[in-house]
């Protein structure tokens, strides 16, 4: 079973029954510990809160010196600016959000379709040099993106995939497949192979047994894995900026980064766009919080 945040909540080092004299010292210490944690949590969360504040401030309050923490006028103009252009039509930024949805969505579906059967096969059957194959698969994910993007750029230019959504979808699928295989192999390992053996005794073929009995049990795992793949593609920046050039193809991360290109920067707009961009990620990661340890280590660590 993967270690989950929820489990982390329930178990832990025991608070033992200490004698009263030591308990008083223990209470003083607990206060110090709580205070430290509170301060640390405040430091960790402040940038996020500041981003939210900036996104709802009027421009003159955004650039106020000294910074205004509480007494500012609330406005939703920046959020409107993210989607609606000054002329009235949709902004290029909103187009890039749509591109992101398409690219991340399709590549996640492809990675799942390719990765889940492979994970099942690796889990169930004896494959030659299985360990080496699996490690090779994971190591492709560790390659520095800036290095990989050089030959990919040349390759795409040659075959006409440069600045196309298909090109981005392919490369994102390729970097999500290793993750999907590793993550799903853990989930498949948890389903006893005996179910399939039993189904085959009833006359089903191996494929039918997988389809009818194992796959339904894997659905929660597939959902969690797909959510992580979605987040990885959604957040990806390096391939997105080097393999696209036009607004029609560009995904949200390079589009948002492009907002700071000029001489003056509309930080309110940057903040609002960042929030619109980050909100789905936060919601999705909350949904898969049980599998976070496995997810963020690319499926490698689970206990």
């Amino acid at each position: 079973m993967a270690v989950s945040v929820n489990e982390a909540v329930s178990a832990g080092p025991a608070r033992d029954r200490t004698p009263p004299a030591r308990r008083r010292r223990g209470r003083g210490r607990a206060v110090v510990e709580t205070a430290t944690l509170t301060v640390l949590a405040a430091v960790m969360l402040f940038p996020v809160l500041w981003m939210i504040e900036t996104s709802i401030k009027e421009n003159r309050d955004v650039y106020a010196i000294p910074a205004k923490f509480f007494d500012f006028t609330v406005t939703l103009d920046h959020f409107k600016d993210v989607f609606v252009a000054s002329g009235g039509g949709p902004t290029t930024l909103s187009g890039s959000f749509l591109n992101s949805v398409i690219v991340a969505g399709v590549s996640t579906v492809l990675a799942t379709v390719l990765g889940v059967p492979a994970a099942w096969a690796y889990s169930r059957f004896s494959v030659k040099a299985k360990k080496d194959q699996l490690f090779f698969i994971l190591s492709t994910r560790f390659m520095p993106p800036v290095v990989v993007v050089i030959p990919i750029f040349l390759m795409y230019r040659q075959v006409g995939l440069f600045d196309t959504k298909l090109g981005l979808i392919l490369i994102y699928t390729a970097f999500n497949v290793p993750f999907t295989i590793w993550m799903m192999k853990g989930f498949v390992d948890e389903v006893p192979a005996e179910y399939e053996d039993a189904a085959m005794l009833d006359g089903y073929t191996r494929l039918q047994a997988f389809w009818k009995f194992t796959l339904p049990l894997l659905l929660p795992g597939i959902a969690a894995t797909a959510v992580f793949a979605l987040i990885f593609s959604w957040n990806e920046f390096v391939f997105a900026i080097f393999l696209t050039s036009s607004d029609a193809v560009r995904t949200a991360p390079p589009a948002i980064a492009g907002l700071i290109g000029g001489t003056t920067v509309d930080w309110g707009l940057v903040a609002a766009a960042s929030i619109v961009f980050a909100l789905p990620v936060l919601i999705f990661s909350y949904l898969v919080r049980k599998h976070l340890v496995a997810g963020v280590t690319l499926g490698a660590v689970r206990r």
């Binding site: 960790m44 959604w234 907002l259 700071i260 960042s274 909350y286 963020v296």
Partner: peptide, 21 residues
């Protein structure tokens, strides 16, 4: 735990832009 995990899930683009500000 949930609160502490927020920064990790953000895109480096968002993190970079925000700290730059």
């Amino acid at each position: 735990t949930t609160l502490f995990l927020v920064p990790m899930m953000l895109s480096p683009v968002v993190v970079g832009l925000f700290w730059r500000f």
